[in-house]
Amino acid sequence: MKECLARVVDNSPLCDTMFQLTLRCDGLFEDGAEAGQFVNIAVNNPSLPLRRPISIYAIDRQKREIRLAVQAKGEGTLALLRSKKGDELSLLGALGNAFSWFVPNNAKRVFLVGGGVGVAPVRCAFDELSAKYDCSLFAGYRNVGLVYGLDGIEKERVFAVSDDGSFGEKALVTKPLGEQIEKNKPDVILACGPAPMLRAVSDLSEKHGIACAVSLEQRMGCGLGACLVCSCKVKAKTPEGYAYRRVCADGPIFDAREVIF
């Protein structure tokens, strides 16, 4: 984990609301980067003091490049959208834990589940884990205009749906997930997406007795675990029955059984 400068290699559209930044960043690879980890990126606008935590979408260790899938939403991400090839951006990373930590040693089949922006880190995990495990990717989108992250994957390994039926079946991602669990029960499910989706995936996993890890999102400060801002509620043997853990340093990926959604 380091603070280092990254050079923008490419900035291109990904879908209606998202773009992808390809960044060359030698410093980041000194300590390595894994699927599920994120970077805290400075947005080159001094009036915005907070860095933006963004999960890694693709890793190219040979070229020492990472790709970030960014949703252009607020001022910070719009500043990133304006960055051009050759620009330098300060990165702090790679931060947090990795999906691979949650895959049991003897696992054979891994289901990866993403919703919207949350498809990015699970697509990264699909690419990283496919060499070792039998992986399938489940993705849910609001509509066809927001689809990304599926290119280059064999058709039989992708189960994509949309809220309005404009892409794939009109369904929640838990529908194809439930069907495939019945057919080919996986050893572990790894998920990232909106809280209701994570809750549903977690319930489904529990019902079938499948290990499940979820990647959480929260507004962050330092990204290092010092400021205690990005807390999430987990079950704990405290008088209150819960405790807060740091999404940045204890996560972003948690065992789904621990999380209080």
Binding site: P46, S47, L48, P49, L50, G76, Q218, R219, M220, G221, C227, L228, V229, C230, S231, C232, K233, T238, E240, Y242, A243, Y244
Partner: peptide, 18 residues
């Protein structure tokens, strides 16, 4: 102390609130 529920941080022009 467990602290407050999230979100615990918000951004404003050249500042933050925690």
């Amino acid at each position: 102390r467990l602290g407050n529920p999230p979100p615990r941080i918000a951004e404003t022009k050249s500042g933050i609130l925690n």
